[in-house]
Design a protein around this nucleic acid. Structure first.
Lengths: 145, 145
DNA sequence: GACATATGTAACCATCGATGTTACTATCCG
DNA sequence: CGGATAGTAACATCGATGGTTACATATGTC
């Protein structure tokens, strides 16, 4: 995946909004739960709003709400909303094209990364925000009801 | 995956060694193909040697060779040899445990990341170094032989 | 044995990306 | 009006990564 925490924090944000689905939640409250600065939260929410996963309300008594039910949001939706296109290190990778290996390796690696990425995204698609919410509610010790 | 180029460069290195399988190749020659410093190459080769994918020969006429045939090395072997354990951003993610969401979200996210990682690694396991080598030899334009 | 050629690795530096922070504007509710 | 909130630009900080130099160690060739 990537080395940043955008996806992790974003899932946290949306899980919080699912948990507090009855009202508009201000960024400062979410920031308290994530333990970071409200601006960091608003930056991520900006991307989530643009991708229509969340609705924003300005002004007093404003805040954020889920734009859809939690079972209609997959973790892949979240991932694609907040993660930049993965470079897989190919940006800093500029091999010597005069070498027979260096000339073609980039193309081959792009194919490999594409498959690996697809494998990962397929798993994210299977998990919905409602699954995350259910796990948050579950009682920890023991599994027998 | 990760933002660094270790995996991409390492696949290049091993593809080069597969291409020049008949002799021991010095790090400076590989560095020329990758277009970087020989020390960078040796650092990665150090990890590859430790994981028994490559054999190193010191001294004059020394260099590096594949330790096994190219069809006995998967890209997952390479990935695990040179990539540090993926953090998925969880290192910088320290939510407020006094919040019901913050208290459990880490555990839930670890499960999600574990599945996503497994999906990606399953694809890397399917590709062998010999597949990469074959694609390097393939003629570019057109697919009809 | 001397020497040239390699690896192995530590140490340091420059650069870049991600995150945190401040500050300000625009907007909305009461 | 006035308080609360989103939206966003600008800047600072920090860590990871990659590049570079330096040097010790090992080895084949003469």
């Amino acid at each position: 995946m990537s080395a940043n925490s955008r996806f992790a924090v974003s899932v946290h944000i949306l899980a919080y909004l699912a948990y507090e689905h009855a009202r508009a939640v201000p960024s400062a409250e979410i920031a308290s739960s994530v333990d970071t600065n409200p601006v960091v939260i608003r930056r991520l929410l900006s991307a989530l709003v643009k991708n229509q996963l969340v609705e924003a309300y300005k002004g007093a008594a404003g805040g954020f709400r889920l734009a859809r039910p939690a079972n209609a949001i997959s973790l892949l939706d979240i991932y694609r909303a907040v993660e930049p296109a993965p470079s897989h290190g190919m940006n800093r990778f500029t091999p010597n094209h005069r070498c027979p290996v260096g000339a073609k390796i980039e193309e081959v690696l792009l194919g490999v990364f594409s498959k690996a990425q697809a494998g990962m995204e397929a798993e994210l698609l299977r998990v919905r925000l409602s699954d995350v919410e259910r796990q948050l509610h579950a009682v920890c010790p023991g599994r027998r009801t």
